[in-house]
Amino acid sequence: MIIIGERINGMFKDIGEALRNKDPKPFQHWALKQEEGGAHYLDVNSGPAVPTDERPEAYKWMVNVIQEVSNLPLCLDSTNYDAIEAAIKLCKRPAMINSVPAERPKIERVFPMAVQYNAAVIGLTMDKKGIPKDADNRVAFAMELVAAADEFGMQMEDLFIDPLILPVNVAQEHAPEVLESLRQVKTLSNPAPRTVLGLSNVSQKSPDRHLINRTYLAMAMAVGLDAAIVDANDDDLVDVAATAQILLNKSIYADSYLKVFRTR
């Protein structure tokens, strides 16, 4: 199970302010803290803190200050592909591009870049019209992304399909559809693409966020979830990830498995 730490995001007040003031400390603090918590990747998202035309410079700066303290690979999170391209050149380890929807012009912009920089790509099962209601349409978008990966010569393991979970308090009917999508996505090719969820979205504005997150994580892992963008410092959640991995016989049990799961 790949844990992608979500905390370096301009939507959080401390990161947004630090980005405006060019203060590396909060970035470096959260890089180290998330690594300690069990993150395998660090998501990096400027949020709305900087104007669009300044984003390439902002992403380059963020990548540099994070890499000063952490060797974790980065998940460059933006819809501004010029910003991603500027930053991806600076990444010391193969990065992940977060994300591209199943829209042809965007696929053509992103997939060749991923191949060039040996990066992974998160492909969203949606297009301009938005997120489908059911599993079938999600899987149809996934198939388009899988075919595109093949067309552009991307390793299938480098494609992470995100079937897009919505908050359970407003869109409850999506939760089982996403699980069914995960199951089917793993049958689309051999080797199969990998799968990812922006997990915390499932519990937006619910009072029992942590419980919802970790319950859904275990359910999703059982049907084929390979990676999740999460709060890497939610210890109970990371424990669930480690335990589900053991119960799915994906890693070999040892008494200290919780600790080993966090060892990088």
Partner: peptide, 14 residues
Amino acid sequence: DINICKQLNILINE
């Protein structure tokens, strides 16, 4: 025993 094998490596490494 593969599980003890792994655990022992962890303990020694620790």
